[in-house]
């Protein structure tokens, strides 16, 4: 048990290290001169340039800069934004909550919708209709779902604000936009899992005890169906992070996605790196949660 936990932590750290290194390599490979990026539109003179080089330690060997970067990253310092001249942790910290709020709401929408759909649409026609809608939702680019929702609910009916993050009503459409593709995929996986579980001998035994079909479904089959769904947690996290990047732009919301896109287009590499490292950390965290959930659901995986 301890060895397994140790391995998991080790693997997580490894992923973080690779992510940080990849980000650093990207920084080195990025086009343009670092000094230019830092100066941006500000005053430019040889003196300022040499000051910048001294201040950022740009004259030292690359490997030393890399080790220094890692060392500071371990201490929670991911550097300073070239453009905003503030520590990136601060820049990201300020935008974390709006994104997190959106991601959590979307995950909630996705999971609840998926379970409800998979469990309630067992009959032939309901099932077919639900499967087809899932296929459509999964095959639609998320930003398009956002645009359609916007044009129907905001422009046509005027029910929800078009953009911004003022109150809860502004969260509804973005959360739905991100939650729907997750719900679509999860519902498919859950339905397959339910089908498979209901074909198992233990389902026959359960029915032979006089259980209602619904009780067999909820008390027995659902737990089995959750296992493959839990395996998708890591994937859903990717969808959520990737989703924030695009959805925040569609709905004009502040958040990490906006920070990432503007950092990419303006070459503010420390911010890009920080976003990458942050999301890798999130991924590791989510996968650890998934592993724990597996243990919780399936006793066969627990080693006594």
């Amino acid at each position: 048990m301890i060895a397994a936990a140790g391995r998991r932590v080790g693997a997580g750290l490894l992923v973080l290290w690779v992510a940080a290194t990849a980000a650093y390599v990207a920084l080195l490979a990025a086009p343009g001169d670092t000094v230019d990026s830092i100066i941006g539109d500000g005053p430019d003179s040889p003196l300022i340039r040499s000051q910048i080089i001294a201040e950022w330690g740009l004259d030292r060997p690359v490997i030393l800069q890399y080790v220094d970067f890692l060392w500071r990253a371990v201490q929670g310092d991911l550097g300073r934004s070239y453009l905003l001249q503030r520590p990136v942790t601060e820049v990201i910290g300020a935008q974390l909550w709006p994104s997190l709020k959106l991601a959590l709401a979307a995950a909630g929408v996705g999971i609840v919708l998926a379970v409800v759909l998979a469990v309630t649409t067992r009959r032939r026609w309901a099932r077919r209709i639900s499967s087809v809608s899932e296929l459509i939702v999964v095959s639609t680019p998320p930003f398009l779902i956002g645009i359609v929702l916007l044009s129907v609910f905001s422009f046509h009916f005027g029910l929800f604000p078009v953009s911004g993050d003022r109150d809860l009503s502004a969260l509804v459409l973005p959360a739905l936009t991100m939650g729907l593709p997750i719900a679509g995929t999860l519902a498919q996986v859950l339905r397959d899992g339910l089908d498979r579980a209901l074909d198992e001998p233990f389902a026959v035994t359960a029915r032979a005890r006089g259980l209602r079909e619904n009780a067999v479904l909820v008390r027995h089959a659902l737990r089995h169906a959750l296992l493959p769904a839990v395996a998708l947690l890591g994937w859903s996290f990717g969808v959520l992070i990737g989703g924030t990047v695009i959805i925040e732009s569609v709905f004009g919301r502040p958040g990490l996605g906006q920070v990432a896109v503007s950092a990419v287009s303006s070459g503010d590499m420390p911010v890009v790196m920080a976003v990458v490292v942050f999301s890798a950390a999130g991924f590791v965290l989510v996968n650890t949660v998934a592993d724990l959930a597996f243990l919780l659901i399936d006793p066969r995986l627990r080693r006594s």
């Binding site: 001998p201 035994t205 006089g210 089995h224 006793p299």
Partner: peptide, 30 residues
């Protein structure tokens, strides 16, 4: 009738009992 009048025993208990539930829960379910 099921469970009260007729009880069913299948081939392999490894798959005929729900592997995710305790033996006690399975028996108590009836």
């Amino acid at each position: 009738l099921r469970g009260r009048f007729a009880g069913l025993i299948l081939q392999d208990a490894l798959v005929s009992l729900d592997p995710l539930r305790t033996v006690g829960a399975e028996i108590g379910e009836v």
